[in-house]
Design a binder for these strands. Structure first.
Lengths: 208, 208
DNA sequence: TTCCTTCCTGTACTTCGGTACAGTAGCCAG
DNA sequence: CTGGCTACTGTACCGAAGTACAGGAAGGAA
């Protein structure tokens, strides 16, 4: 696999800590700044603020060589927006605050010619109508499991089985406060917003 | 990256030389033979003869764990067929006689959660040209939906996919208040206490 | 016509979940 | 020894979820 260079384009031009963690040599650019890579295989990451349209992505698409993939990181992911991004020849669409391991995964998939697209959007495209809500983030077992500490994993699994914080506390012999701390850490690490989506991630990849 | 096991399913059960070259330890299976993997992360490759439908893929999909991706290799690739495959939750679609390097690439992308989908099909989907019927049901027939009205069923499914009340309201074009009403009715009828447990029931992780 | 079911909606309230501020303590690597 | 990580915990707050009171409208069966 050739070395891949990562360019993060955003309003501020900064490289968020998570992005930097995933790609230590990532470069930041502001909207409007030249993004043309001078050499090597490049992946352009486009940060999309909430509520912003995707017209600018289509614009920058025309300024880049066809072999430079664009991955959009959205502050507020949604299927409508994702669909518009893919229509603008984007190769991947994710959450601005995704964990570094997931960012790397997305980059790897896209660098190899694959698409990173939420299941719900795929279903929606196949049906031609919007029937399914915003996607639960896709995380493979090898990822979500490995991202967590033993305790966090334990809590995640009990959550995914349907337990409330109070029930988890009782079951694990800790306070509800600690449960919340672990749940919060798990949500953060996996880049999901609430326990329901956490359960989707955990249960989607477990044998029964 | 964890070790990935490759199972090639075809009429003859053989592993073609190119497949063997890409994945030396690949295993062959005949259609109808048990494909259930006993351990490890598995990718199922399904050889699709020319002219054959994809019904069998949807069938085998229901027998496999959700985390076992299916990649279809077609003797005569085409967008119509590809689309039907993706509607059956296939993760990758390629040519039976692809070169080993490409096979490895596809496997890598899919194993990491990406999609391997042709550019022309993607564009076609985005243009809404698709004419095929809704995807084959993946979830097994459930008891829960028989207890609900059509609208309640719809809301339940959207909840089970991870949506918040606000998102559901937007999606279905009703108020959040109405969403709550339906969710409440669904919880009552199914005898579950909250949306998380509802999701477990709807998604098949718990009987009801 | 009446009754029932379904869908839609408002007001009001409580509880739970999630987040942000903070802390202690133990363990381990540098 | 220091710093980082993990597990545990408190206080405080806000928003989402869930529940209970209520209502109206439409459609269909008796």
């Amino acid at each position: 696999m050739a070395v891949v260079r990562h360019i993060f384009v955003s309003a501020s031009g900064e490289v968020l800590p998570r992005w930097r963690e995933a790609f230590p040599k990532a470069v930041g650019r502001r909207f409007g700044e030249a993004v043309s890579p001078d050499s090597g295989f490049v992946v352009v990451w486009w940060r999309l603020p909430a509520g912003k349209g995707v017209e600018s992505i289509a614009d920058v698409r025309t300024t880049l060589a066809a072999d430079v993939p664009i991955i959009v990181l959205s502050d507020m992911p949604g299927d409508d927006e994702a669909e518009a991004c893919f229509a603008a020849a984007v190769r991947g669409y994710g959450n601005t605050h995704s964990v570094p391991a997931l960012l790397k995964q997305i980059a790897d998939v896209v660098a190899q010619g694959g698409l990173w697209i939420g299941e719900s959007l795929m279903q929606r495209l196949l049906r031609g109508v919007a029937q399914i809500p915003p996607p639960a983030p896709i995380a493979q077992p090898a990822v979500w499991d490995e991202l967590l500490t033993e305790r966090e994993r334990e809590v995640a699994q009990v959550v995914a089985a349907g337990a409330s914080n109070k029930e988890i506390a009782r079951e694990l012999g800790i306070t509800e406060r600690t449960v919340k701390a672990h749940v919060g850490a798990v949500l953060d690490k996996l880049g999901v917003r609430d326990r329901l989506q956490l359960a989707l991630v955990v249960n989607g990849h477990r044998r029964n």
